[in-house]
Design a binder for these strands. Structure first.
Lengths: 342, 342
DNA sequence: TGATGGTATGAGAGCGCTCTCACACCCCAG
DNA sequence: CTGGGGTGTGAGAGCGCTCTCATACCATCA
């Protein structure tokens, strides 16, 4: 009379006993195997319902050699430096997508870099079935290692160089967004459109700069190197870069800045230089962060679909995990949000 | 010759074979039981080292009836509305604290409220050993339910009313911070110090308002109800509330606003009304968000130790989990950050 | 009619660990 | 020298599930 156990939550065994079938059959029903007679299925489903049965995760992973767990790997710097809303947004998207599946999301925050080995070790040991990697550094070796070990992996941002096609990726259309932003400035009649670009060793920095170049090319103009100043995504650097640009080209009347925070710095410099925004210089940022909305004047900026990005990453990973789909890449549209700075 | 398995990662069995002891002894060493002879311990440790052994999580939880997993329960509204940096900060603190333990952090985001039952079910089913709850709502029943089910639980913010002493909590000293902020305004010589308070059904709103009252009382002044206007933490509501205050008391020369975002709204209104900040009205916000730093003028505000809060929550939960400590409560100091708005 | 093949089902062997229990052993008191 | 009370150790029984394999059954074909 094993089914009369009563202690603790119901087990497969209990369900089997109540449904009058074997454990194997219950397992088949639970895991959606097609080879079960309608009657047996029915009986099992009723028993599950009646007993409020839910499979035991640990037992399942032990026997099934998988963890039913997906890791969200975030590097601490990327959270701390500038990715707060990015982190929150992607996480929201990821959890929404994963919520209805049997996968659990475990958070692995690699602090300072020295934790990285521990994290990698954990992942490679089979602690998780797949990984979503949100990393500040484009050259992060982790995705490649995971893929090499056969652990499905999807990264946020550009496909990692080393990993070939083994790693899935989802990126926002940084280049396209930048291009549209600059096109917008040109449409507003700006003649000399400069850019405060991000660091050239960061993919978004490079891509956004390329968008600026392409937009100028589209309009039949040269991308004069004098019109580019690099900065490290901080407000101060943005202010400095803008100062450089104004010195080099006092005739600047349009400015595309590769992040909202840097755009705030640009605003500081422009104001200090007595240039009005948007009358003298029209300004576009990037990110559509809270800062853009609350700036004075509110910033025209490029919005990334952050939450969608998280959701797509998760969906792509699930495809690999559940359906054995090959890793894919996806670019998500960005959107120009026009406010008073242009 | 079981030890010659070679396939997959090393198991307890492998270690035992290599060390020439039984599985039980290896288990004892791994779990830090004191009843192991130095020699055996030594042999086991060497074998572990040599084989690169790491315990299998699933097997461990299955046999040990615990999951070695801690849940971070976040309600979606709290992320989406205003807690981006809060979410990122606490998470950072939590992971830092948990990183060196054997506990995994799984993220449970309760979207929209209807997912709540699923989340709760999962937790109550023993999916996790303990929970950290970051919820926007003070009356969230989840912590109480968990505690009632014997699952250790620590919440961010005020101790939940229903749960008695069964739930641990860590809160920032909202009242104290507000009190200091208002005292600061008074020290600056402000005579009529009003407040834009948060909603009275949210603990931080209530506490910060109380801080304002106490500071006035400390200075021997009345907390005239005319000097309070409530708002829902949004910028617009902050602007509106400030307008109300100015109408009621045009002589206001100091303003404590219960959040930075609302303070931005206050700034809008003050500017529109032709009042200079800080000359005519000195302004203090709360949160020390990026917004405060980038406002014009930069906002004096109250900083909460967000990351520490996460770390303390995790530490407290570990205490309960590992050492059976009773749930405790802790209040973390807040810090006044003086900038140009006062 | 018997061979063939497909399909639903159950038996049972693990997955890698924990934990109880029994045992062997040693030290010291009686 | 015997008896008691540790203390280190191993045997072995699970934890709840998956998965392979064998079996029973039925329909089909020659």
């Amino acid at each position: 009379m094993t089914q009369t156990a009563g202690a603790g939550p119901a087990t497969l065994e209990d369900v089997a006993a109540r449904a009058g079938v074997s454990r194997a059959t219950v397992s088949r029903v639970v895991n959606g195997s097609p080879r079960v007679s309608p009657e047996a299925r029915r009986a099992v489903e009723d028993a599950i319902e009646a007993l409020g049965y839910a499979p035991n995760r640990a037992a399942r992973s032990l026997a099934g050699h998988r963890s039913e767990t997906v890791a969200l790997v975030v590097s601490e710097p990327s959270v701390r430096l500038f990715a707060d809303p990015f982190f929150a947004g992607t996480t929201l998207g990821v959890t929404a997508e994963l919520g209805s599946t049997r996968y659990q999301l475990v958070l692995l925050m690699a602090q300072a870099g020295e934790d990285r080995p521990r994290v990698e070790d954990h992942l490679l040991r089979g602690g998780t079935d797949g990984a979503l990697v949100v990393s500040a550094r484009a050259d992060d070796p982790l995705p490649g290692h995971l893929a090499a070990a056969g652990i499905p992996c999807v990264v946020a941002g550009r496909p990692p160089a080393g990993a070939g096609d083994a790693v899935g990726w989802v990126d926002a259309d940084n280049e396209g967004g930048a291009r549209r932003a600059v096109a917008h400035l040109l449409e507003r009649g700006r003649r000399v459109v400069a850019t405060v670009a991000g660091p050239s060793d960061m993919a978004p920095g490079v891509d956004r700069r390329r968008g600026w170049e392409r937009a100028l090319a589209d309009a039949g103009r040269d991308a004069d190197p004098d019109l580019v100043a690099e900065a490290d995504f901080s407000r101060e650097a943005g202010a400095r870069a803008t100062r450089t640009l104004l010195e080099r080209r006092p005739d600047v009347d349009g400015l595309f800045v590769a992040s909202d925070l840097m755009a705030l710095g640009a605003l500081d410099t422009l104001r200090a230089a007595g240039r009005r925004v948007p009358e003298d210089v029209a300004l576009v940022g990037f990110d559509d962060s809270e800062l853009a909305r609350s700036a004075d004047p509110p910033l025209t900026t490029v919005r990334q679909p952050i939450e969608l990005l998280g959701a797509r990453m998760a969906a792509m990973l699930l495809d690999q995990l559940e359906r054995g789909a090959p890793p894919a890449g996806e670019v998500l549209d960005t959107e120009l949000v026009v406010r008073r700075s242009t």
